[in-house]
């Protein structure tokens, strides 16, 4: 019983992180149908930025989140306007996916050159505090990671729901042409969406840094995770990402607990493939119309 509870708590912590890491991927997919294979590397850039700020200036990783987000927002905007949009215009969506893959390879190489391929981790001074609730042990790091993930997801939901930028992004996602006819500058919106996406990916990277060790080759893992989350939860909405992420977290921890630590990835992909086949609309049932 205790084991099950502990598994659930661990799964939720991991799941919160997955949700936050996936939301940007989901937005880009929902708004412009681009599968951003460089999403995982952006998550890791967030981790490394936070790592630098912590090592050189001693900034607490949770406090560095806003800085990381601002920096990556700019990066995302420029990346979309300067490269992705050109690729989509000149070629096809599938080919634009290859461009994002190429960028992922380049950035991964850069990270390896700067930081070495070894694992890094961020350990703030409060990292070793933990508390015990009944039979379950929760360390402060994990609980703050979960809290930060949830707060940021809520923040994004608010931005999308109640700000002008959010409304324009949602309108473009639903009806590209109609939004353009209403005078929305679609390219600017795409840029903003990429910016928001990169900002939240970076935030998840900063949080990930305090929970797990990270290294450049992990990027593929985070990209694929994002895809699975989106497949589970549906495209383009924070609530979908939250449900997909939490489920994935629970499935991962439960699989490694019940079958063995080598199997969560295989299980994840099995679920991905099955979900694509039986319920391409995601559990919540929106979007994914293009899959068949």
């Amino acid at each position: 019983m205790t084991l099950i509870l502990q598994t659930i708590v661990d799964g939720l912590v991991l799941g919160g992180l997955y949700s936050l890491a996936a939301i940007g991927f989901s937005l880009i997919f929902g708004v412009m149908n681009v599968v951003n294979l460089s999403h995982g590397i952006i998550v890791l850039i967030g981790s490394y930025l936070s790592y630098i700020l912590w090592r050189t200036l001693g900034i607490d990783p949770l406090l560095s989140i806003p800085l990381v987000m601002v920096a990556l927002f700019g990066f995302g905007y420029v990346y979309q306007r300067g490269l992705i949009q050109l690729a989509v215009d000149r070629s096809s969506l599938l080919a634009s996916m290859l461009v994002t893959f190429g960028v992922a390879l380049m950035l991964r190489n850069v990270l390896v050159l700067i930081f070495s391929p070894d694992f890094k981790s961020i350990t703030p001074s409060w990292a070793f505090n933990f508390f015990v609730i009944g039979p379950i042990t929760v360390d402060l790091v994990r609980i703050s990671a979960l809290a930060a993930s949830l707060v940021l997801l809520c923040l994004l939901a608010l931005v999308l729901g109640y700000t002008h930028m959010g409304r324009v992004i949602r309108a473009t996602a639903q009806q590209d042409l109609a939004a353009r006819l209403c005078g929305v500058n679609a390219r600017h919106v795409y840029g903003l969406t990429f910016g928001v996406s990169a900002a939240f990916a970076g935030a998840s990277g900063a949080i990930l840094g305090i929970v797990l060790p990270f290294s450049p080759p992990d990027e593929a893992h985070w990209t694929i995770n994002a895809f699975v989350v989106v497949t589970l939860g549906g495209v383009g909405s924070p609530s979908g990402a939250l449900i997909g992420g939490l489920l994935l977290g629970l499935i991962s921890t439960a699989t490694s607990q019940a079958i063995g630590p080598a199997f969560p990835n295989a299980m994840m992909f099995l679920i991905l493939v099955i979900m694509l086949l039986v319920r391409p609309a995601g559990l919540l049932g929106n979007a994914f119309s293009g899959s068949r």
Partner: peptide, 8 residues
Amino acid sequence: LRGIYFAI
């Protein structure tokens, strides 16, 4: 599955 979905 078509397009990106088959690929993935």
